[in-house]
Amino acid sequence: MAKTKWVSDPAHSEVQFKVKHLMITTVTGYFGSFEVEAETDEDNFEKASHIVFTADVNSISTNNDQRDTHLKSADFFDAENHDQIKFEGKRYEKAGEDQAKLHGDLTIRGNTKPVTVQVEYAGIVVDPYGQTKAGFTISGKISRKEFGLTWDAVTEAGSVVVSDEIRLLCEIQLVKQA
């Protein structure tokens, strides 16, 4: 069976995270620079032998320069020593017609933990330029503290400033390589 290589289309993909602030509102952040690579048998993602996602920590944006600088600091991602986040997919498990679970290892700040994300497969199409593309919506939740992002603060009234749970939401478009 022929192996097919896929890479992310950055113009049509986004990686987003959401975290509760003061437990009353949600702050959304993005990674502006990231890559996804996949290798499949033919065009079958269920038989993917290689799925790797990397994000540049220094590309983080929450639309607030002061907060972004804090997130890059040793209090959180420690970008000076750990400039990349990496997810290596281990198993793509079909969970319905267009649904799947992707099991793999996520590395943040040098800490690697097993993570499972939900995958909604939108299908494969050929764009107007003749490129074959595959689309996915990926969602999941992680504990930031499990990855060494342990900075905490509590308000005078005892409220947590930043939640432990981080929600992930990614829209990924892959381009089939010739």
Rank of each mutant, 00 (worst) to 15 (best):
G29K: 03
V57E: 00
K47S: 13
E97C: 14
H103D: 00
A153S: 09
T54Y: 10
A2W: 09
F147Y: 11
D152F: 03
G148N: 04
T62M: 03
S8H: 09
C170P: 10
S73H: 11
S59W: 02
H12C: 03
S139T: 10
G29Q: 01
F31L: 09
I172S: 07
N63A: 12
R167H: 10
K90D: 08
Y92E: 11
L168Y: 06
D83Q: 15
I124E: 15
L169G: 05
D164I: 01
I138Y: 07
A178R: 09
D164F: 06
G110T: 13
T137N: 15
Y121Q: 08
D105C: 02
M1R: 05
D56T: 04
I166C: 02
F17W: 12
A38R: 07
I166D: 00
I138P: 02
D41V: 09
E120W: 08
G32K: 02
S8N: 09
K3E: 15
P128L: 00
L168K: 04
S8Q: 08
V125S: 06
H50Y: 15
H82F: 14
D127L: 00
G140V: 04
G29T: 04
V154A: 07
V154T: 05
A38N: 04
V57D: 08
F136L: 10
K5I: 10
A178W: 12
I124Y: 09
D83L: 12
Q131T: 06
V126W: 09
H70E: 03
T25A: 14
V154M: 01
Q66Y: 08
V57F: 09
E39P: 09
T62H: 03
A11V: 04
G104Q: 02
H12Q: 11
Q131W: 03
H70G: 01
F76V: 09
K18A: 04
T40P: 04
Q16W: 11
T62W: 12
G29D: 12
E39D: 02
R167V: 05
W151F: 10
V7C: 11
G32I: 05
V162F: 08
V7G: 13
E165Q: 03
E80L: 08
S61K: 05
V119N: 08
Y30C: 06
A55W: 05
E39N: 13
I24G: 02
A95Q: 15
P128F: 05
P114H: 13
F53C: 03
S143R: 08
D164E: 13
S139C: 15
A55Y: 02
T28F: 13
D43Q: 02
E120G: 11
W151T: 07
A95P: 15
G140D: 01
P10T: 08
M23I: 10
D75H: 00
Q173E: 15
Q99R: 14
F17P: 00
K18R: 10
D98S: 07
G130M: 06
V36G: 00
E37Q: 03
F34K: 05
D68I: 04
D9Y: 01
A74M: 14
R167T: 12
G32M: 05
G29I: 10
C170M: 15
D56G: 02
N63C: 12
R144K: 07
R144Y: 04
E35V: 14
Q16G: 11
V161Q: 14
K133P: 07
V175P: 04
D127K: 00
K72T: 11
D43V: 05
T150K: 02
S49V: 08
W6D: 13
I172T: 01
H21M: 11
D164Q: 03
